[in-house]
């Protein structure tokens, strides 16, 4: 079962791998295609981690610059997505080390846009409040827990891929996802309780 999944992953990621291989061989213009495909996803990855649009944009630039600079370290037998997210994690880690103060996300920077479907005004308001509360709760979560949730819930990566990114067993990823969700839920309901009282 696992072997089959892995084979499917490999096929899914083939185009990225080919482009990155071309970049590694010196055709750096191909990085433009990879940017087109992944910049938005990376931007949202950093946005969930940092809460700041400006910092997230800087970090996306940093990731693509690092991938250019360290293109020789890319190995074709590796999954490109896992490699890219490893670079992204390192970029975020370096940033967090340098700007310790900014680790707490600035949750008021930008108002959230409403969801795309069209609920009633009352439902809409309720959903917006829930989303705002959840963002605050996410901001209070320790960064390593926030990271595993962002990867699994927002980036839609499989646990196998996350294990490759984090360099651990799949079982360990699931345990971390469970613990992070549990802690998030505790913070969320605590905040919701404060608001209700």
């Amino acid at each position: 079962m696992d072997g089959q999944d892995e084979a499917e992953n490999l096929v899914d990621n083939r185009p990225d791998d080919q482009e990155m291989l071309a970049v590694r061989e010196g055709d750096v213009g191909k990085m433009g295609t990879l940017f087109e495909r992944h910049h938005r996803m990376l931007f949202n990855f950093f946005l969930r981690l940092t809460g700041s649009r400006a910092i997230s944009e800087d970090l996306v630039q940093d990731v693509f610059f690092r991938m250019l600079k360290y293109r020789h370290t890319y190995q074709p037998e590796n999954n490109f997505m896992a490699w890219m997210y490893r670079v992204a994690r390192n970029a975020h880690l370096d940033h967090a080390r340098k700007f310790k103060l900014e680790l707490v996300p600035d949750t008021d920077e930008q108002p959230w846009e409403p969801a795309s479907h069209d609920p009633s005004p009352h439902q809409k308001l309720e959903q917006e409040q829930e989303v705002a509360l959840l963002r605050r709760a996410l901001g209070k979560l320790p960064v390593e827990k926030r990271e595993v949730l962002v990867l699994s819930r927002f980036q839609n990566l499989k646990y196998e891929e996350i294990a490759e990114i984090m360099g651990c067993e799949v079982g360990a990823v699931k345990v971390r996802v469970y613990r992070a969700t549990k802690e998030l839920s505790e913070i969320y309901f605590e905040l919701a309780g404060e608001k209700a009282s």
């Binding site: 938005r40 409403p114 989303v131 819930r153």
Partner: peptide, 9 residues
């Protein structure tokens, strides 16, 4: 968490 919308850079 699924209701948190994606943003555009």
């Amino acid at each position: 968490m699924g209701a948190i919308p994606e943003e555009r850079p």
